Simulated scan of single mutants.
Amino acid sequence: MRIHKEGYGIVLKGFFLISIAVAIVILWKGLTITSYISALAGLVIFSFLLRFFRSPNRVVLTDDTAVLAPADGKIVIVKEVYEGEYLKCNCIQVSVFMSVFNVHINWFPVGGVVSYFKYHPGNYLVAMHPKSSEKNERTSIVVDHNGTPVLFRQIAGLLARRIVCYAKEGTEIEQGDQTGFIKFGSRVDIFLPIDSRIQVTRGQHVKGRQTVIARF
């Protein structure tokens, strides 16, 4: 299992802190049941860190007419909304919620040129909250896909306190390239043209880089 580069520091620090904590318990209590429980708890925590920052090998199912899932998770919103930050029109919003058990890498859902990027500081409402797309810390990214602007947002959640985004205005990207990483629970929203043919439903679990969210 590969570890994503955004997790190198946290995983390494976690290993040392857990090792020190277990060593202190063993020196204090000796090889007792308490020591074994502490070691087991440390192993569980370290295993969680490894799993959270995993970076799976996946084949990108590129399709110029398709919008691919930008993240692993569960579809929590599919509805028509007015997008007022950049697009200034009615769109179809599709939101993917990532629990702490999902892969937290984000990918570009379409290929094209990054025409807009903005970081918004904000609150840390639960990522499934309807207002988190407007109130929480987030990034907004627009990709010009063959003349069609596709906006998507990385949104911090209650536990997520750091959004990493690699997007830069003016750069050309491929469908399935990494957008960034959100640490410890979050959401990604996509805003699509009103006439897009949506291929997912609320409650459906999707896989980033592979599940088709919509077609143009």
Rank of each mutant, 00 (worst) to 15 (best):
V114R: 00
R202K: 11
V142E: 13
S95G: 00
F191Q: 12
R215I: 14
W107R: 07
R58V: 00
D195V: 05
G176P: 01
K131C: 14
G170V: 13
C165P: 13
N106S: 04
G208H: 02
Q210S: 10
I198P: 07
A23D: 03
V94M: 01
R58M: 13
Y124P: 00
V78R: 02
E6D: 10
R162P: 04
I190T: 10
D72F: 06
K118W: 00
P109M: 11
G84R: 01
F53R: 10
H205K: 10
S186C: 01
Y124F: 12
F101K: 14
V103P: 00
T62G: 02
Y166A: 07
L68T: 01
S115Y: 02
T32H: 14
N57V: 02
S196N: 15
A66W: 11
L87Q: 13
Q154N: 04
T139I: 13
I3M: 14
H145W: 14
Y36N: 03
T171A: 11
F152A: 11
S38G: 06
F53M: 12
P56S: 08
N106V: 00
T211W: 03
T171E: 15
H145L: 12
P149E: 00
V142F: 12
V114D: 09
H4M: 09
I92E: 15
G42N: 02
E83C: 11
V150P: 13
L159T: 14
G111L: 06
I198K: 05
I155Q: 12
S133G: 11
V100Q: 04
A160I: 07
H4I: 08
G14V: 13
N106C: 00
I3F: 15
R153T: 04
V25D: 00
V110E: 03
H4E: 10
K168A: 00
L159R: 15
Q154W: 03
A71N: 05
V126T: 12
N123I: 15
S140W: 06
I75D: 06
V22Q: 01
E6K: 14
L12Y: 00
